[in-house]
Nucleic acid binder design. Structure first.
Lengths: 220, 220
DNA sequence: TCTTTGTATTACCGGTCGGTAACTTATCGA
DNA sequence: TCGATAAGTTACCGACCGGTAATACAAAGA
């Protein structure tokens, strides 16, 4: 009896050793790839036509599947949009954590955040944050999404405030100044074209200096 | 023969003198008032819930009438939205004409436009310009609306350019600078609340200085 | 007073969309 | 080889929405 069990276990171990979780993981990976493909197609159509005017049939058609197949990966159309928002916010947060990782003055951090957020606004998932009206979401999901937006906004305010404290930024109305900065950057999501004249980096560099021009203590 | 005609004319004239176009004009005025009421309710709901999620039944309900009655004043839902856009653009253009009326440096004019456009962004019809996605419009109507937006944008660029020419503004990338300025102001349409801390004028004054801070030649 | 005109109503239509049920097919593990 | 599971498909449903007759009704004009 134990012989049989051992043999099975050995066989399983050899298999696992050769390629751990092979079938299971491979399947999960495939699934994630497909899920990601749905999101990329969906966000692209949402930006192109608007959320309400994009039917799940269209999304499915572009993926060469049928609408009900989408429900293998998402519970509802709303969940698809929420995931798009989440991916955009994730991108933004990744940059923020990178900035927080090394010590710097508030001004340097603020400029870095401006540069990074400009780049986010050139991505589909980033543009989704400002171009798809979150009114289409249920109250619950909307609160969730807005919480994420507030979090990003908070870091703008934090960096500006700490810049005023460490003397790298002149005193100013934090709320209004951050609104002006984020507004200018959000607008990038509306006019940026990948085939346009400027790269994301050039826009970011220019904005980083221009939007902090009247705030910086030492003119560089 | 001429007696009859004269008598009719006299009667008509007396009537007209007492109250010209009385019945006709009064009716037209009533009609315009009602038409305006539809637009005000509609734009308010569009901002609150989004265009696609606002049904004409809801609009009608808030006006204590029924949906088909709306079709006495508008040919379609789209026409209602186009009118909302138009009213917003009209507000903006009125300010621009006021600015053009008196000669000034490019910097002064740019600042005046910033102040004015900030105020437009605190009005429903102004917010409509930036918060209702024009993807819901047919291609034709969309082009029409975008032409209006471009026109307003053009004056920002004109004022900035003439400021660089008359020496009141430092050399800069016109396109990018105007995008930054208009983006910051457009964002006001998203966060402004009539019951908030700041008045439209305060926001405008602050932005007028802050957004031109790094552009002005003479620091004021 | 009769007619016309404008404004509103009720009832209804066609079409679309999100979502579901039932069924088929392919793949993997035992 | 056989059964379970995942991933598709076709067919369909209920709800809603923009828009349109057909009609009622009040007020102004002749």
């Amino acid at each position: 009896m134990s012989g049989d069990a051992d043999k099975r276990a050995d066989a399983a171990e050899m298999k696992l050793a050769a390629s751990p979780w092979k079938p299971f993981e491979a399947r999960r990976r495939e699934r994630d790839v497909k899920r990601g493909a749905v999101l990329r197609v969906a966000v692209s159509l949402f930006l192109e036509q608007g959320y309400d005017r994009t039917s799940l049939n269209e999304v499915a058609e572009r993926l060469n599947i049928t609408k009900p197949a989408l429900y293998n990966y998402f519970r509802s159309k709303e969940e698809i949009l929420v995931e798009c928002y989440r991916l955009g916010q994730e991108k933004a947060m990744a940059g923020i954590e990178r900035i927080l990782a090394k010590p710097d003055t508030g001004l340097v951090r603020l400029r870095a955040l401006i540069r990074h957020y400009c780049e986010v606004m050139t991505l589909d998932f980033g543009q989704c944050l400002v171009r798809v009206d979150d009114h289409v979401l249920s109250a619950l999901a909307r609160d969730q999404v807005r919480e994420g937006k507030r979090l990003i906004d908070r870091y703008f305010r934090d960096f500006l405030t700490s810049g005023m404290e460490d003397g790298s930024i002149k005193p100013c109305d934090v709320r209004l100044t951050v609104f002006a900065i984020t507004g200018a950057i959000n607008w990038v999501g509306h006019w940026y074209r990948a085939d346009g004249e400027m790269t994301a980096r050039e826009i970011g560099d220019t904005y980083a200096m221009q939007l902090t021009g009247s705030l910086a203590v030492e003119e560089t």
